[in-house]
Design a protein around this nucleic acid. Structure first.
Lengths: 189, 189
DNA sequence: ATCAAAGCGGACACGATGTCCACTTACTTG
DNA sequence: CAAGTAAGTGGACATCGTGTCCGCTTTGAT
């Protein structure tokens, strides 16, 4: 029997909005890895219990915020124009994906960092999606055993790696260049 | 004026040994990321204050244990025989380094994971050493701007990445193969 | 044997987590 | 529109880990 999911109540919707808005501000304002459930509850003007009703931890709030921004990229990877979308050779598509991810990290690195708390970055968020994408590129490039390589190719996009590079003074474009070179592994044998 | 560092007192040395031994056992026994200062103090039979006297946090205890095992590799990279040490072409040296790191992670992945708590894996431990090594390989390969690429090439060796790959059922040798392919970026443009 | 200082360890204050439940609010139904 | 009810709220509570502090003990030099 299908659950005919009742629509969200008005006050619930109002609070969800307040929470997300406040959370976005806080992640931007202070070290995203140090943000606490209490910080967000206080800033949003709701009780902690209300927060826990929808989100099990801070990371999942950051994921909720980040998802919005990742949607467009996910769409473009599947159906957008080349080189991001289908049509271009795998190496070029990978490079384009890298560049897009760098832009995303540059714009929302704070949220990305916040998703890392607890150390389970492979289970939450969009990691599975990115991995599936890279896997398909690897298969298209006729690489024998793509599993391990997919994770290795995604590792440089870890939020903390990007943050570390930026903190060192490396520019987004410098990072893109480096990743473009990495993407070349899909070209030749 | 040079500090003529007095030698470590007998009871201090005894306790240091007890602590390291107990810590090694605990990191191996339970989730290394969940190990607490208290766990180690209890197991070692010392007070928490004693622990804090030498180690500021759990990660630094794991680093102390890991250092021992990393010493040999660090030595071989600098002065050992090729392809690990000097003499072989950069791409092969990088592949050899990757393979050695995989062996190290396979043997002491628990300690490596424990060094990651708090999320500052770039400041503690041997990251600086590995990075310097890769940087020198990149320069030898005459790569224009090695900074960003060095971090990208090291990212797949992050303990959590390795742990995730192993948990997925990927074998150490499969991971080595993937990394060997990555190392080829140093060959020919 | 004495003593200063190095080392020890547990108590303490604090901050974050996650749960629980009495109360309030929004929607539905008669 | 009144009343019922289920969803939603929020703060109190218990628990746990952290890091510090300080009176006591041990060590080794004199």
């Amino acid at each position: 029997m299908l659950a005919t999911m009742r629509p969200e109540r008005a006050d619930a919707a109002r609070n969800r909005a307040k929470v997300l808005e406040a959370a976005a501000a806080i992640f931007a304002a202070k070290d995203p890895r140090a943000v606490t459930m209490d910080d967000i509850a206080k800033a949003a003007g709701v009780g902690r219990g209300t927060l826990y009703r929808r989100y099990p931890d801070v990371a999942s709030i950051a994921v909720a915020l980040l998802d919005e921004h990742e949607q467009r990229l996910q769409h473009d990877l599947l159906q957008g124009p080349p080189p991001l979308g289908p049509g271009a050779p795998p190496a070029e598509r990978l490079a384009a994906f890298y560049a897009a991810m760098v832009d995303l990290l540059e714009a929302h690195g704070d949220l990305a960092l916040a998703t890392e708390v607890g150390g389970r970055r492979f289970e939450i968020g969009a990691y599975g999606f990115w991995r599936a994408h890279v896997m398909s590129l690897l298969r298209e490039a006729e690489i024998a055993t793509p599993e391990a390589l997919a994770d290795a190719l995604l590792a440089p996009l870890a939020p903390d790696v990007f943050a570390h590079q930026r903190a060192q003074g490396l520019s987004p474009s410098a990072i893109k260049s480096a990743l473009a070179r990495l993407a070349a592994v899909l070209s030749r044998p």
